[in-house]
Design a protein around this nucleic acid. Structure first.
Lengths: 339, 339
DNA sequence: TTGTACGCGTTATCAT
DNA sequence: ATGATAACGCGTACAA
């Protein structure tokens, strides 16, 4: 059932039918109704591919995820993705989720996607400092929206949670619990969120006049195993911390396991915190003190931001999203020594 | 840079260029090389949309996930999805991930996708008994591949793990540990995997000559909260089980929490098992005895199966994938009473 | 081996 | 308000 057939059936021209279907004003009201009715009855559905070719727009957006990372598996990000995709679906937009391999040239993959005509815009998941992907997108003047902020980003192109504030709060809490030796197992250093979090941590430490050991600030990918190893090193050093901030709840779980293996009691004589409020976090023992944010809202805002760029919509955007600290059992007061 | 421009630049016709580019045999070797070289130099990229329109194929596959479920968040399934998408990408296929809302008519959503021309085939994530989606797809003779098996499914259309065997093993193990009162918090009853698992459970119980209480077989969506409530009910009944099989590791975590709240000690005086080997499972306490399977292999096989349908490829397919039992600390010998 | 011409299903421009 | 016609970029019979 093509528009041609529909036009023939109605005794009208393709053009008129097309206009009626697409809500143009210069079409007789009766005609429009007839067309709409016939389309309904005959089950006419415009062919999206043809629409794309003719209009030059694909009504499809892309997001490229590293296949090896656990980003896809990270509960918090998965929720953002679901919410993003949901809102887009409501606006008749598709989301293509592509993965990228280690061995692939990232810039090339992005370039391919940009020039493919497959997508009208691209979402960037975790921005990096001086992100080459953004340079590329800017250069090609290709619409994008990122989840992550760096100095200089335009309000039209980013959504982020206040990572700095989150870790400022978390660190402050540790300090108020009496901790002076606070380690921080941060995410990969190249991520903007890692920088923001580090700033929050440093700010709280400095405000309290605490000594900051550079050995206490570590970076790694968000994997339990990494946190496990790092915690082991930290706790077996000459100067072990009494509190460890982890970059996410998976890492917190690894840190907890590591501490227990070394004879510590997380939540009693060693404080550990996470981030993201993963599903399991409130059920593990000790339940993880963590940070949560409104994942659905973030996803939705990202979609809105993109639509504002692509359509003539003017959704009101909230660039920054606040976080909430969930105090549970994995952190605790500082103790003089092992129990 | 269109094929037209490229042809003009080369002083050839569009058709020749097209043939050279698409590897047809009836084109002069020198010509082909020239074309390929020029395409490379000028950075020519065929417009996928135009290809689609002309060929009638979209080189895109779809998968529809319920937005409210945690399927997207389930680590095991997310891995399947990544692997699926990876393999497809290698074959120059795209994967569109769509979500469906509670309030949407599922059949209509599938029908829309089928008739949209957006995708060449559809993946079905969790098959249900007498699945209406499959009826629809069959009726439209639309290519599909499912993850899940039911009697009558064609070898050309499904991949599954041996759920029956997995729960047979798991139940057998409980029996060998001395348990006679084994409850089973199963996934939703309409899923084929739930039926298969139940059969495995029942087979082991019957072989051992154990009484099967119908009250011990429960069904619920894979959420910690559900397992929490159900475990509470089970353990507070007149005849509490000494072992509880859960449909996944999230549920196991919920069951563990519930038992502990009631004063039991999971892994000591109450046995609990999971399924899926989620990331957290080996780090929680007690570490969850669970079932794992090769998620990457499953995703890849699904992709291969689809390609065999769509292209003239003949990948060798392994329909059934074996599971492996990971014995950890959450299950234990049966005890006479609470400690 | 190469070129011509048409079709794919739309949208958009220009008359009428 | 409506219709004819030309794009959009590619594949592909058919002709040469």
């Amino acid at each position: 059932m093509s528009i041609k057939k529909l036009a023939e059936y109605l005794g009208l021209s393709k053009s008129t039918v097309s206009r009626a279907l697409n809500g143009y004003l210069d079409v007789n009201k009766d005609t429009r109704e007839k067309v709409l009715k016939a389309a309904q009855e005959l089950g006419y559905k415009a062919n999206p591919t043809a629409k794309r070719l003719a209009s030059g727009k694909s009504r499809t957006l892309g997001i490229i995820l590293p296949s090896d990372s656990n980003m896809f598996v990270s509960p918090a990000f998965a929720k953002v993705l679901v919410s993003l995709s949901e809102f887009l679906a409501q606006q008749d937009y598709q989301l293509i989720v592509t993965t990228i391999f280690d061995w692939q040239d990232e810039t090339q993959v992005y370039l391919d996607l940009i020039t493919s005509g497959l997508v009208d815009g691209i979402f960037i998941a975790r921005t990096r400092c001086n992100d080459l992907r953004l340079t590329l997108l800017e250069k090609h003047r290709f619409p994008y929206v990122c989840f992550g902020f760096e100095e200089g980003f335009s309000k039209e192109s980013f959504i982020d949670v206040d990572n700095q504030q989150a870790f400022y709060q978390l660190t402050q809490r540790q300090i108020s619990l009496g901790h002076t030796q606070i380690a921080f197992i941060n995410a990969s250093a190249e991520l903007t969120l890692s920088q923001a979090r580090k700033e929050g941590y440093l700010r709280a430490m400095k405000e309290a006049g605490l000594v900051i050991e550079s050995d206490w600030i570590l970076h790694a990918e968000l994997k339990q195993e990494n946190a496990l190893l790092m915690t082991e090193q930290l706790m077996q050093s000459n100067n072990p911390p009494t509190s460890i901030l982890c970059a996410d709840d998976s890492m917190a779980l690894g840190a907890i396991a590591s501490c227990e293996a070394l004879g510590y009691k997380p939540g009693i004589n060693i404080a550990i915190t996470g981030y993201g409020d993963y599903q399991h976090s409130r059920y593990v023992k000790p339940a993880i003190t963590t940070i949560k944010y409104d994942t659905s809202a973030v996803g939705k805002e990202m979609a809105k931001l993109m639509l504002n760029k692509l359509e003539n919509t003017a959704f009101h955007i909230q660039n920054w999203h606040q976080t909430e600290m969930l105090v549970r059992q994995s952190d605790c007061h500082a103790r003089a020594s092992k129990i």
